[in-house]
Nucleic acid binder design. Structure first.
Lengths: 187, 187, 187, 187
DNA sequence: GATGAATGAGTATTCATTCAT
DNA sequence: AATGAATGAATACTCATTCAT
């Protein structure tokens, strides 16, 4: 039941937005009552928190797996970008909620999610720093800023990337990595 | 008075979010009454629309000026990136509202803003296409996707870029352009 | 200008109802401003009062003229019924407002209109009483109740009578008078 | 609780009118809160609809019972008139709301009530037509118009009929039927 | 585990009216 | 004679949350 509520919430939040979706909407969509909702969740914000937590936790796990592989920094970065685009593809609704509805978290909950988000970014930053140190990436780069640049490029795609469209996630990742690695200027 | 309402609204929307800011909050902040608000704006959404319209219109004007300059595509792209970062710097609140609160527009209003957003992106795409044609940018590039990549990188910065921080807008633009033009891979 | 406001108000009150029509609606319809309205009318209720007053005053004048004719009671009653139906025909909007929007008057204004309405009814009652006395109408009739019966029959027609429809005002008056004078039972 | 809200609403609508009665007035009168109101009714209009529906449904049932009696058309017509006057007597407030506040219904709701009202009138029209066919009523009558005449006479009485007054419902019915059947002209 | 009734604080919006100019 | 800015009180309606059963 808890899982059912979560699933339906995600769909509704994606379509109408968090604030615009009432608890009544949620329970109506699964034929339950509000009482039931509050049996499983202490508040509406808690439900949103759960969704965020679930998403970022999985992302961090996948990141950890990728970073601990025995591969070049370049290859790891490519894997990360692809993983993020795949996430947007397979969990479009969750990704959208993760980026769009974070402002509806507050206090400790918000703090916790922001920490995990930052941890993810630091993972990228660390990868870039390593790449610079071992001579894979250019030495003049600002690792911090570069992580923001790459994550911006990738994260923004939740706004326009259509998994059913002209390009697959793998193709977009390929093209993004080409730009990130070699730039757009004619050699 | 209309300008005063708009200014205060922007500050409040930035801090608390559009939905979370009530008309009462707005008029309280300037010592007016709700009646006064509705004398100047037909609805809360109309106020948000005005803010969006103002922001995107100015952006389009600046883009137009840049694109009609007599300069290389590279220089124009740099100018565009810098202009966007400057916008985020000088009009941080408006930029944030522009990216974060668009979902609170609906119907024709939304349509109109989306059109203008797309027009801006098409300006970037066209510039890249031109650069490819005249041999400034690599010929294998997908102009469409590249425009999304660059705009993602830049737009995302409203989420983290702090104009009072370690790096100025010009410096960030410089670093972004370095990545965009040459990539991060060690030559 | 005063007449113009009144005319347009009548049309709007007829279509949307008194409460549902705002002063803004009224002044918009003639391209004036609210200030102008209050230059000519002390309140919205006063405007409604004027409309009522105008309507009932004309009705009373016409009634007076009919009652002072040199004719049989039967003929006078017929003339009265016809006059009322003609009023509904030529001044449909005013008639409708007169019957439907009276509840929006209050205090002295209401009192005054109710007095005039009652004066009109008493005119009918008096006519019936005379008719009974001089032997034109059945002696067992209750003049008071009969006046209510006849006025009900006629006044109610503002709810269904369509001057452009199958029957003209004169024809309806004819048929009503037939029922009123002879009843519907087969002789 | 739903019944309680309905009862109190009827009393308030009767006294102050539908538009002039706020939800706050209603819930204050029974010591409940607005939330409670909206737990039972989806809107203020829905409450009005319920009241209308209840009234007209009962009227139609009673009409059906009367029309299916084994009696003369004359007797049935008398029974109908009496029934309506009794309704106005015992459910004065509902009757008043039914006639006065119908304009506050709109869309499908209005349509439905108007249909039922028309069904009631058609019942009367049919009765008159039958009476004409079997020779109880004068053959030259227009059944349609006659139904409007009789219903006007009776319905209008909600405006003046006082059940505690000089005449009882039965007496008024008697006098109305005398006029309707035999007319007022001296034989 | 689940329900249904109740709450109360909050929200956008409307509008008749006033008044200085 | 007319305007336009401002008001403030009122209104229908929403919704997350509580709690006894």
């Amino acid at each position: 039941m808890k899982a059912k509520i979560t699933e339906h919430s995600i769909r509704l939040f994606e379509q109408k937005g968090f604030t615009e979706t009432s608890i009544q909407d949620i329970v109506d969509s699964i034929g339950a009552t509000k009482g039931t909702f509050y049996y499983y969740f202490s508040s509406k914000e808690q439900l949103l928190m759960d969704i965020h937590m679930d998403y970022i936790t999985k992302l961090l796990e996948k990141q950890k797996a990728i970073l601990s592989e025995n591969a070049s920094c370049k290859a790891k970065l490519h894997a990360l970008v692809l993983m993020l685009l795949e996430s947007i593809k397979t969990e479009k609704a969750k990704a959208l909620i993760f980026f769009r509805e974070i402002k509806n978290l507050s206090g400790e909950k918000l703090e916790l999610i922001l920490q995990k988000r930052e941890a993810f970014r630091l993972g990228v930053e660390k990868l870039i720093r390593e790449g610079i140190e071992i001579g894979e990436f250019a030495e003049h780069l600002d690792a911090n800023l570069t992580s923001f640049a790459i994550l911006g490029m990738v994260n923004w795609s939740y706004q326009w990337f259509n998994p059913e469209g002209r390009k697959s996630a793998a193709e977009v990742a390929e093209l993004f990595m080409d730009i990130v690695l070699h730039g757009i200027e004619k050699a």
